[in-house]
Design a protein around this nucleic acid. Sequence first.
DNA 1: GCTCCTTAAG
DNA 2: CTTAAGGAGC
Lengths: 255, 255
Amino acid sequence: MSIVTWNVNSLKVRFPHLETMIKDCSPDVICLQETKTEDANFPLADIENLDYFASYHGQKTYNGVAILSRERVHEVQFGIPNFEDNQARVVAATSSTGTRIINVYVPNGEAVDSEKYVYKLSWFRAFIEYVRSTAKTYSSIIILGDFNIAPRGEDVYDPEAFHEKLLCSDQERTLFEELLGLGFLDAFHERTESSERFTWWDYRMNAFRRKLGLRIDHILMTESEFNRCAEVKILKEFRKMERPSDHAPVMATFM
Amino acid sequence: MSIVTWNVNSLKVRFPHLETMIKDCSPDVICLQETKTEDANFPLADIENLDYFASYHGQKTYNGVAILSRERVHEVQFGIPNFEDNQARVVAATSSTGTRIINVYVPNGEAVDSEKYVYKLSWFRAFIEYVRSTAKTYSSIIILGDFNIAPRGEDVYDPEAFHEKLLCSDQERTLFEELLGLGFLDAFHERTESSERFTWWDYRMNAFRRKLGLRIDHILMTESEFNRCAEVKILKEFRKMERPSDHAPVMATFM
DNA sequence: GCTCCTTAAG
DNA sequence: CTTAAGGAGC
């Protein structure tokens, strides 16, 4: 059993990359962010041709999330319940084995102290409450996606330069810790020794070539899942391709 | 000796098509319209690599004309002298054999009775006066380009439907006749029997596949040149290519 | 940088 | 339908 999270930055543009990833890895579940596709234009037939079911929730230009799965999922839920939000950032579903999967695209926040940063914090607080209530119903949960938070200094190519900067501020990191405190493990961090930790490299300034990345895409899981989790890998080769997403996929494999 | 006119609808996008045309036809002179390239971005080195000199006059987004030539040309002139116009629509030059070449991109006119139609008519009147004065100095002249006028019913796929419509209105056709009256022959019309007369097919509604075209790109010449003109061909195959211009090149060959 | 949308022009 | 610009967002 394996599960992937990938911010594709346009599903339409990245469809060939997704096909390659599926041929190479054949994950059981794929959580996509930034599909940037209205539901009416979602490439459902193409996804089905690749032998996946799809639960998707999108809008044009911005955001958009989807869960692709080999097996049919159930209890599909879009957005954060009881939280007004016109942005398509969350889709949750229960796998055939009963694991609750929450696919999330946390707001970027633009810059510390911007209006969007305030929105990011309040959005993430609402998300934490949603997870807290989910944890009352499900014992086995995987939360994965683009969190737009680099949890620790080692998750940033230049921790000094990023001190209190967006993606790294104390407020963001404290909220991330609060989420983990609900009973989740940051699986890559706990399972992987590698110093190659980054999942995102800015398109600008040759950041990828220069190895200037951050780790902002995460797979969090309850202890039950973590005990079965054999490996978490960052599929960096997909950031090397022609016309890549700025994010690499992250894959967790279970026993 | 051969000369080509081609509205490329972006020189940048159509550069590979231009290369193919040059390999296939190797014209001595190529007159381009709608290069849509500022002079600073004109691909001069690439043109020189193809063994052409270039006289160009462009702007971003719209218009832009260029004369490419195997031999150096002289007396290069941009625009209509003494006519204020911020649109790059005319370049003229004298060939090594003394023929005056006028490359023109006539305003489209949007729709009969629009403001742009009024501009088109006054622009074309100024152009006629310019040609009249040129004819006093040069005995051998070729005017070629996108005239945005279909001179006769047979130049339109549905003459009835286009009655008094843009590109076919009496006012436009009368001005075209007035230009010919200065001593020019519409070489394709005079030299070619073929019923395949069209040079432009709208990108929309599969116009090319459905053979819904117009003849709006012309090569006009003084009698001296016409007597040497062996053939005028519409290079329709370039409209069949991948990512084509909406116009086909038109080529005149001289003895 | 890269993606998207909108607008403008044809 | 195709092109290009301009602006937002990341």
